[in-house]
Design a protein around this nucleic acid. Structure first.
Lengths: 381, 381
DNA sequence: CTGTTAGCGCTTTCAC
DNA sequence: GTGAAAGCGCTAACAG
């Protein structure tokens, strides 16, 4: 029977076998590099394949082996340099192992993420690397169903409770804490936090804050916890007004910054929890006519290639993007290979790259400055 | 016969049919949304599918329909904001049409690109969007073989001669020319070009330059042609020494810039042909202690979110990234849908966003300044 | 080492 | 509207 689509047909293994004068299986064996074939037969098959322009149909192979040699990668936003950096690490190592990747971007929207897992599941990927937007145990059904299908899953950038999988992250809390400690050591007491957890604008209680933190992405949550810990441990009161609560866009970050600066007691330093947040802050700085670090000290997460070309350059937290990607991919490969140990959290170290965007708090007295002992990183780059 | 992989088995359509008490075909029809099924049978099938947790096997479907509902996208570098922006445009529109994408990055390496096309071809994608690193008719065999397989191909960012396909690009030459004209109008006569075609460092003849231009990516080629045209048409001599010829990395761009500035007659303005080139230039500026625009005027291709937060902000060429992606995807969908007209070049307009990084040439006399009439864009943003 | 044969899970005639 | 059966291109037992 000839179906309509035959028009577009490509040579199949049977045709190659026919042309080579060998059996179907022999042709399949040489073309698929398995079993053993006499070098004579092999040569004939190869020649015939070449002549006919044979290309193996990966779909047909996958369906009969049950292995697609493809992994799915679900990220929050391809445009974010964090993800594009990690992606490079991932694709490099999986490619080296003969796998391909299909990349999906969710805009940090759980619904899109659920769709994405379905797509990957239907496409029979051998494993999934996922930067999940899931917060609590309530929204992990889609991940669970992947796991029930025995599809290995590795979590990226975030830990999701209730899941027995590997997670590849950085020491968000510790590094955020260290950043704030640096600021405290310079005498800053009012430290603004941009890209904070979304909460109702009217509620400025510590309780409301803590509650909103529980409803935030793991990485963001850890970062703000580090911020709070540093403040609490040093006896510096937390002012929820200093923690922005806007939508996570550059524009809103700029807006949030301007709001903070318009406060009766504005911050003297800012911690921006992601690179787009920092861009927003810088916009705000230009608009308000401020200068840094004299007018305001700046430190942010996710170093980028442009943070060094500003004048002065920006002090930033740098994540080991390639290593994160490599590790995620390696763990996934291990699982695909059959390893079945308990899920682990792999915490890679981030570092603070000290440049010129933070300085002493202008209002601080020398005494205040020495209350907290400095913890500076050595100068890099 | 039970094969090993059965361990990992998922419910199949047959099992659903069995559970629903209908025939295989009826189940397939309702689950695949084709043919017609009595609403009674349909309900039973749906219920059974739900109960068993049935998920359609996209691979099996693809192999029997010959359609994978997947398109391949091959870009030069996912980390480049140009590509991540276009990618968003592409994925948005193909997703809306029920397609998924598999994204591959080549590092602008033709060999990787050839591999990528093979992978996509083997995976039976329904179409390919490709930012090809191919220069001339010599390296289009892989693209040709895609076309011979009747796989629609749309070219992105670059035109490749000898191919009857749609190409989605911007008016590179015109916009580069306009950028240079703006500079000329301000009295600049020595205008440096960063990210120029690679050529032997010893050869600084115009012939050597023209030759190297012929061996460059189409988009780069058009841009430098625009640069040369503006110069030639205004009787300003072209000095090949002003056109950098280094490897295309930020580091080398910085190096190239410093080399230009060390010339006996250094440039008074710079055109950076891509955003990483501009980052390199800015690094160079910091290292040499220069300031812009007083010390040197700066204009570059590929506006980014950070170009506006520099002080002063950067005057940049902005490409309509989303529109480029949308158009590429739409044309591809059209071709996949069976449209078979001749390939066309779709040229979308880029624009110059005037900010504060260019100014009058300090050395120019008022007469010189007025020799070329200004062509400024209106201020935007 | 090689050919035959039976699947993989789905779609698609074709008769009923 | 529905079921039986053939087929997509490949891999994998099994016998020889």
């Amino acid at each position: 029977m000839i179906t309509g689509r035959a028009a577009k047909s490509q040579p199949t293994i049977s045709e190659v076998a026919l042309a080579a004068g060998v059996g179907r299986a022999t042709a399949a064996r040489t073309l698929g590099n398995y079993g053993s074939v006499s070098s004579d037969a092999r040569a004939k098959v190869l020649a015939a394949a070449e002549a006919l322009g044979y290309r193996t149909n990966a779909l047909a192979r996958s369906i009969s082996t049950g292995v697609s040699k493809t992994v799915g990668v679900i990220v929050g936003d391809i445009g974010n340099p964090y993800f594009s950096g990690v992606l490079r690490g991932i694709t490099d190592t999986i490619k080296a192992r003969g796998y391909d990747s299909i990349i999906l971007s969710t805009d940090e929207n759980l619904h899109n993420e659920i769709d994405a897992t379905s797509v990957l599941s239907d496409k029979q990927v051998d494993g999934v690397i996922l930067a999940s937007a899931a917060i609590g145990a309530a929204d992990i059904r889609h991940i669970d169903s992947l796991i029930r299908r025995r599809t290995p899953v590795v979590l990226l950038d975030r830990v999701v409770p209730g899941l027995d999988v590997d997670s590849i992250v950085i020491n968000n809390r510790a590094i955020a804490k260290k950043a704030v400690q640096n600021l405290l050591a310079l005498g800053h007491r009012r430290i603004g936090y941009i890209w904070g957890p979304t909460r109702s604008p009217s509620d400025n209680s510590r309780e409301g804050l803590d509650e909103s933190i529980a409803r935030t992405l793991w990485s963001d949550r850890e970062r703000i916890k580090g911020y709070l810990e540093a403040l609490d441990e040093n006896g510096v009161g937390v002012d929820p007004l200093l923690i922005s609560s806007t939508e996570k866009t550059e524009t809103m970050a700029a807006h949030a910054f301007e709001l903070l600066m318009a406060l009766p007691e504005p911050p003297t330093a800012i911690l921006a929890a992601e690179s787009p947040a920092m861009i927003g802050v810088l916009h705000g700085i230009r608009r308000t006519g401020l200068t840094y670090p004299a007018g305001i000290s700046l430190i942010g997460f996710d170093d980028t290639s442009w943070s060094e070309v500003l004048e002065p350059p920006l002090t930033m937290v740098r994540q080991p993007l390639l290593a994160l990607g490599n590790t995620a991919a390696e763990r996934l490969m291990l699982r695909i290979g059959g390893f079945d140990g308990p899920g682990q959290i792999h915490t890679l170290p981030a570092e603070i790259i000290s440049r010129g965007s933070i300085t002493h708090c202008p209002e601080a007295t020398p005494t205040e400055r020495s209350e907290v002992k400095p913890r500076f990183e050595q100068q890099s780059q």
